[in-house]
Design a protein around this nucleic acid. Structure first.
Lengths: 225, 225
DNA sequence: CGATCCTTTGAAGCACCTCAACGCCGGTGG
DNA sequence: CCACCGGCGTTGAGGTGCTTCAAAGGATCG
């Protein structure tokens, strides 16, 4: 991609080089300030003034909303390269916390024109990131509204494996509670579903409870509905 | 605000200011072609080549995804002024149908730069619309994943009333099935929930089943969770 | 190694779904 | 004008998938 034809549909461009923080393409300029956040530390909270938006460099971040009685919905997990915290109003509309120790870059929120004139590629990156967020949100609504527990888990594993798999081994950056609050289930149902998949030989749950081996992706895809 | 700082959060800004100072002469209005669609007629289907995106002029449109066995999730209802069908890939990722007879404008999909240089205000409108779609999707995930039937209905009624109410009278452009498929419920549960709200005197269901009177919005807000 | 947290497993309950029937309304044609 | 019809909405009865409540097994870390 040379002149990033920021098409209304393609500004995200297949070429992820710019998005991923590959040292190689450190084309600069966007002046953001790095920040490290500890496990479970808050990056910002719902209602905070949205003075910055962020890009994950390493680790992972969850963004979520809470109901008055504590019920939580994690709308997304953000992995290295992902941008989060962009708002259209002047307040953050959800909260963000690090899943484990993470490093992120904070960009001062600024007008899109300024951003665009200063660094067109970065502006496209931000817009592209929003588009991907929207697409994921749309897929996730289908999952939340219409899929059964097993289908939710299957989808989750497949999506996650696409993003951070090495071979068939997936290293979960999040706890069962996080998974449950992302999929609209309880931790017990998540656990039971995983156990069931294991008993069917579709996945493997090593003693190290934070990792999963996908033994039969085809079977997962069949389950996905 | 005259200098509309199209901030990353505010580019939707009521006042769509220019990102780049394009000659004022280049005011060419967006050239879209009007189109009328009959009740339940398809505007585009999931998988279709995304050659156009659309703006609702009158009537309403639903966008949705289907699972292989027919389960449906309506991710959004689009009312006059709303833009839908913008994609980042070259295919539509969901289907769109008119709720009732509707008129829409089709815009040939083009690169964002071209769009921006040709009509900055319109480009901002499109981006702003995407931002709003994302925000609604995020709110809706909380609803789908964590709210109970009654809370879902209460939220739905309040959101809808904000958009198309005249007084406390809401004229539903969609059927019970559409509501159910939007909220992740069945039509029976939707019906029972509405009946329950009516028995509590919170709403009124006129004989004309396509309208609802909100008698006690405060009560609805309390139910919303 | 003890404390704690996370995860798993079991048993019981409930919110919502499924299945089924009926009522209502609008359209249609005799 | 009314009988018929079909689509949509409501209501009821029963079933179930997931939740809730409870407790025990493992992993991690001081």
């Amino acid at each position: 991609m040379q002149t990033a034809h920021a098409s209304l549909s393609t500004q995200i461009a297949p070429n992820a080089a710019l998005l991923r923080n590959t040292p190689a393409s450190r084309t600069t300029p966007e002046l953001g300030t790095a920040r490290t956040v500890a496990k479970d530390e808050e990056v910002f909270a719902e209602g905070d003034r949205a003075a910055y938006f962020y890009k994950v460099v390493s680790g992972a971040v969850r963004t979520f909303k809470l109901l008055s009685d504590g019920r939580r919905q994690i709308d997304a997990f953000h992995l290295p390269g992902d941008i989060f915290g962009v708002e259209s109003g002047d307040e953050h509309r959800f909260s963000a916390e690090a899943l484990g120790d993470a490093t992120i870059i904070a960009y001062r929120r600024c007008s899109l024109d300024v951003l665009a004139s200063r660094d067109q590629a970065f502006a496209n990156q931000v817009i592209g990131s929003m588009m991907r967020s929207l697409e994921r949100a749309q897929d996730h609504m289908l999952l939340l509204g219409r899929k059964h527990a097993l289908e939710k888990i299957a989808t989750f594993l497949l999506v996650l494996s696409e993003r951070l798999t090495e071979g068939s081994h997936v290293d979960l950056p999040m706890s069962r509670i996080d998974i449950a609050d992302h999929l609209g289930l309880t931790i017990e149902t998540v656990s039971r579903s995983l156990t069931q998949l294991e008993r069917q030989g579709i996945i493997e749950l090593p003693a190290h409870r934070r990792s999963i081996v996908l033994r039969d992706k085809a079977a997962l895809e069949r389950l996905e509905a």
